[in-house]
């Protein structure tokens, strides 16, 4: 006691800097994983630079109208020289977003239900079979989804589209005028949904399976039914992962080329009527035009690629914000 009094009030020190000196093996390992970690960034950067370099001329010429107008024409004279060009992506951008959102809207509920079934209800043997089928589905070539969508899905999806139109037609996006129901953004969205269901299901199932057992048991011990356990414990825990998985699916849906190209009727005019047989898609446009494009048009396609790239980045950025907001709460 006396000692303390003699000392007087102790000065509060500023926090020390804490450092550690890693061993050589640790440094080596760190260098290896850093290389791996940065490589994706480098590759992404190189792609962006390449697209920007190739498309710069077009972007400079078209300016903002490249993403606000919808006309895409290349006029050539009888000698094959280009006389006039107009490049506008608006219809394609709207179409890309529309199809991708339809896909996510359909795929996420189905995938979450599937993941819940696999994690909490399916008997072990069935679970094993279903999981490998779903993984197989994720690796399925997209052209086959496209063919299947065109020849098998289209007729029945058309029926559903007509039904939606009949009962919800008063909502502007479900209007169809004139009544053409084939090759619509809706059908492309359904095909995309089927393609991204495996991804979203796998990721959701993975996070569900990590739900802490003691929390599940705590809920059961309080007299909860299985559904209540899922609702109050598993879903809050998995929410961040499900959102993340959905965003991966969204990214895939926005970038998907061949399947959409196969089923969608590409039209150079903005169309918000999801059931109407006219749509747009940036990636499909590139595929459509690339084969017979002149070097100059190819530059325009590169610029379109850059815009798609930036759109995907932007959507992923938004998604990250959502995940960061909702992710940690249930953990």
């Amino acid at each position: 006691m006396t000692m303390l009094e003699n000392k007087g009030p102790a000065a509060i020190p500023s926090p020390r800097e804490i450092t550690t000196e890693p061993r050589f093996s640790d440094k080596l390992f760190r260098a290896i994983v850093t290389t791996g970690g940065l490589s994706s960034l480098v590759i992404l950067g190189l792609i962006a630079v390449f697209l920007g370099y190739q498309g710069f001329e077009i972007l400079a010429k078209e300016g903002i109208s490249f993403i606000t107008t919808s006309e895409w024409t290349v006029e050539v004279d009888s000698f094959g020289t280009i006389t006039n060009t107009t490049f506008g992506l608006a219809a394609m951008l709207v179409g890309t977003i529309l199809c991708a959102f339809i896909a996510v809207l359909i795929a996420v509920p189905v995938s979450v239900a599937a993941a819940i079934f696999l994690s909490f209800y399916a008997p072990a043997s069935l679970k094993r079979v279903l999981v490998s089928i779903i993984d197989l589905m994720a690796a399925f070539p997209s052209i086959l989804f496209g063919f299947w969508g065109l020849f098998v899905l289209m007729p029945s999806a058309e029926y559903w589209a007509k039904l939606i139109n009949r009962y919800l037609g008063f909502i502007p996006i479900f209007e169809v005028d004139p009544p053409i129901f084939t090759r619509s953004p809706f059908i492309a969205g359904v095909v995309l949904a089927i393609m991204i269901i495996p991804i979203v299901t796998s990721i959701s199932r993975e996070v569900f399976s990590q739900t802490p057992l003691d929390r599940i048991q705590a809920a059961y011990a309080l007299g909860a039914t299985r559904w209540n356990v899922i609702r109050t414990v598993a879903l809050p825990y998995a929410r961040g992962g499900i959102v993340g998985g959905s965003m991966l699916g969204l990214g895939r849906a926005m970038g998907e080329t061949v399947a959409v190209y196969t089923v969608l009727n590409i039209v150079y005019q903005i169309n918000w009527q999801v059931l109407f047989g006219a749509g747009g898609n940036v990636a499909s446009l590139i595929l459509l035009k690339f084969g017979e494009a002149q070097p100059y048009e190819i530059k325009a396609l590169m610029a379109a690629g850059l815009v798609l790239f930036l759109l995907t980045l932007f959507v992923n950025f938004i998604a990250d914000q959502i995940v960061a907001k909702s992710g940690s709460k249930g953990r």
């Binding site: 003691d214 709460k329 953990r331």
Partner: peptide, 14 residues
């Protein structure tokens, strides 16, 4: 028949 576990397990989302 309620139960209190050896390891505390509150619901962190609540």
């Amino acid at each position: 028949i309620g139960m209190v576990f050896q390891k505390p397990n509150p619901f962190p989302s609540m």
